[in-house]
């Protein structure tokens, strides 16, 4: 028996909106730790890892570890039917072939339940080691989204370079080139407007903008994004999910031909 009650149901809607274009089908794993997911995109270039810790739920009952195979676009369709302020409860029996999403309006005057068919998904679980990064950039998530969107009108790839000057995002395409430099800046009115660059060593890596743009679908989840870079490792683009967890996108770099 599984029963997870999330008061901030809107968070789950935002999580699904940030996943559904990257991944078609995925197993949600429920354990005492929390509600998590690890999935790759269909071309095995990017990987997403979601964790919503059990403490973040108002009620968290998970009698035994359970893996729920879901089609993410169908799950997003169902969650779209919940109000942004609704309380969302996810329920499933141990041997269930379906999952129930219950939506309660904040003043309890409307209660809806949606039942979605589960699916068997054969997915490969990858072991992600803890890594030391050469550079970690924290910046406003909306700024990062704007940069990725702007650069993708000019080129297909972005070179992200971190030096002591700051972080540089560069692209080139048929019409020309573009470089955007963001400097370390903590003299801002609000902490979420800061750009914080921690650099052990300079690093420069090339990534497909199509994937970066897909990751920025998570922008509504968090004011800040963390971009962790190391030579010859996938970049990690992380958004916090309130105080209860995170969504991390890993993207393999491109190498010179």
């Amino acid at each position: 028996m599984l029963e997870l009650r999330l008061v901030q149901g809107g968070l789950l809607k935002k999580v699904l909106d940030s996943l559904k274009d990257l991944v078609n089908d995925a197993n949600f794993d429920c354990s005492a730790t929390g509600f998590s997911l690890q999935a790759m995109d269909s071309s095995h270039v990017a990987l997403v890892a979601l964790l919503l810790r059990s403490e973040g739920f108002e009620h968290y009952r998970c009698d035994r570890n359970l893996s729920l195979g879901m089609n993410l676009s169908n799950m997003a369709k169902m969650l779209k039917c919940a109000g942004n302020d609704d309380i969302v409860t996810i329920k499933a029996d141990d041997a269930a072939d379906s999952v129930t999403f219950m939506f309660e309006s904040p003043n309890q005057d409307k209660i809806a339940d949606f039942d979605m068919k589960l699916m068997d998904i054969d997915s490969e679980h990858l072991g992600i080691p803890e890594a030391e990064f050469q550079a970690i950039v924290r910046m406003p998530s909306a700024e990062f989204a704007r940069i990725c969107k702007d650069l993708s009108t000019i080129g297909d790839t972005v070179v992200i370079s971190v030096t002591k000057e700051g972080v540089k995002f560069s692209t080139r395409g048929d019409i020309g080139t573009a470089n955007i430099v963001c400097r370390h800046n903590t003299s801002v009115d609000k902490p979420e407007e800061a750009t914080i660059i921690e650099m052990e060593e300079t690093v420069s890596l090339t990534f497909a903008l199509r994937y970066m743009n897909s990751f920025t679908k998570a922008t509504p989840l968090a004011n800040q994004v963390t971009i962790s870079l190391s030579s010859d490792l996938p970049v990690v683009v992380e958004y916090k999910v309130a105080e209860m967890g995170h969504i991390r996108f890993y993207l393999a770099p491109k190498i010179e031909e």
Binding site: L47, E124, T206, I255
Partner: peptide, 14 residues
């Protein structure tokens, strides 16, 4: 531009 690497090259299967 460039060769796209596969994410599974970096992480072990568990």
């Amino acid at each position: 531009r460039g060769i796209q690497r596969n994410i599974t090259e970096f992480f072990r299967s568990t």
